[in-house]
């Protein structure tokens, strides 16, 4: 129970941090932001590796294999897409010309 409670603390505080950090994002960065958060939840790959590491029979290994592939797609695809988007914001506001 204590572990669950600790998790709940972390969860709620992270939600507050999430609202605070994101509340200041200008609308022109909404797409990169959505893409960036999409890449960050790719951290599910960590949990996929952990459960894959404890798989003991063929059927769970197959499911674990797919879990890792999907998580890996999320991480690598997510960060590359975001990188391409934010690369377009290379100049400082109003600096061109």
């Amino acid at each position: 129970m204590t572990e669950l409670l600790l998790g709940a603390y972390v969860f709620l505080l992270a939600i507050i941090v999430g609202f605070e950090v994101i509340g200041r994002v200008p609308s022109m960065l909404h797409t990169p932001l959505m893409s960036g958060t999409n890449a960050i939840h790719g951290v599910v790959l960590v949990s996929a590796i952990i459960v894959a590491g404890q798989a003991h029979d063929t059927s769970t290994r197959i499911i674990a294999f797919f879990a890792v592939v999907l998580g890996s797609l999320n991480v690598f695809g997510g960060f590359v897409v975001t990188d391409r988007m934010v690369n377009m914001f290379h100049s400082r506001p109003g600096e061109r010309r």
């Binding site: 998790g7 950090v21 932001l33 939840h41 951290v43």
Partner: peptide, 23 residues
Amino acid sequence: GFVLGNELLIVAGALVGASGTLL
């Protein structure tokens, strides 16, 4: 993250959940 007792997953998931809801 709750299931595995992994705080990193809880933090990252909650951050994305909060920002996504706001967006």
